[in-house]
Amino acid sequence: MSAVVHGPGAPAAPAGPDTATRAKFLPYLLLLPGALWLLIFFVIPLVQLFTVSLQSQFPGYPGYYYRDVNFKNYWAALTEFAPHFGRSLLFAGIATFFAFALSYPLAYAMAFKAGRWRGLMMICIIAPFFTSFILRTIAWRQILADEGPVAKVLNTLHVLPGGHITETWMAVVAGLTYNFLPFMVLPIYASLERVDPRVIEAGGDLYANGFTTFRTVTLPMSMPGVLAGTLLTFIPAAGDYVNAELLGSDRSTKMVGNVIESQFFKVPGGYPTAAALSFTLMALILAMVFVYVRRFGTDELV
């Protein structure tokens, strides 16, 4: 009998000369199916997408392209669609900030104040997922519409610039904030839950001021969760096109996602441009993630 379950006290050390060989192959055996799946259906497609992003069009034959190493697609992607990139990052950034502002009190209350209501609150956060994300986004469109209650109230008070919410960036940001909120709440909650409430009491005892305690004790202790939450919100928000499509206007609120989608499905021969846009977006996001993780560093993510 070799070690199927390694003695957890010494996961690294070989269990003994007789079992060492089997133990050496076992992790690879466990890893193999999942890793193969990701290799074939994640890594190879990305490589393929990259080669597509370097292809050139046959002149005069829209929709036909040949293998090439053509970086012009990237240049076009960056110049022609720069405003879309800007909007994607900006909208996602604002939405991430609002999601954080809404999530923190909720996560905090769940971790420290909710008591036996904690489980119910958790269900309330996850449950809306099951009413389709598209259905809920469309619901927001109707709620925020010009004849809907929100726009009417704001217009009566004359505080709404332009008089509309839908078809503006505000609706898009609101939609992004709403849709990715749970991705912010759950990691923050997970990290706050691990904080011993007595530590916070000790903070209150030593500083005797709620805000100072929060700033110097609670917030730093929840940073890993905040970090994970902002990434889990920002990344999908920056790549989203459904909110811009359903809540925004045809021109002034389109994000990179919308361009990629239409280049793929609506523009003949748009594949190389769409691929270049995809790679640029991914590179931008990975670079930001890298800088962000370096800056607020944690190794809990991986």
């Binding site: 497609p45 393929q48 997408l49 889990l232 990344i235 790549g239 691929a275 790679f279 977006l281 991914m282």
Partner: peptide, 18 residues
């Protein structure tokens, strides 16, 4: 980990291509 940090649209586009 990387698939979680990849925007859905990029994953969708690459899968469609392949």
């Amino acid at each position: 980990f990387v698939p979680m940090a990849t925007p859905e649209i990029v994953m969708g586009a690459s899968l469609l291509t392949i």
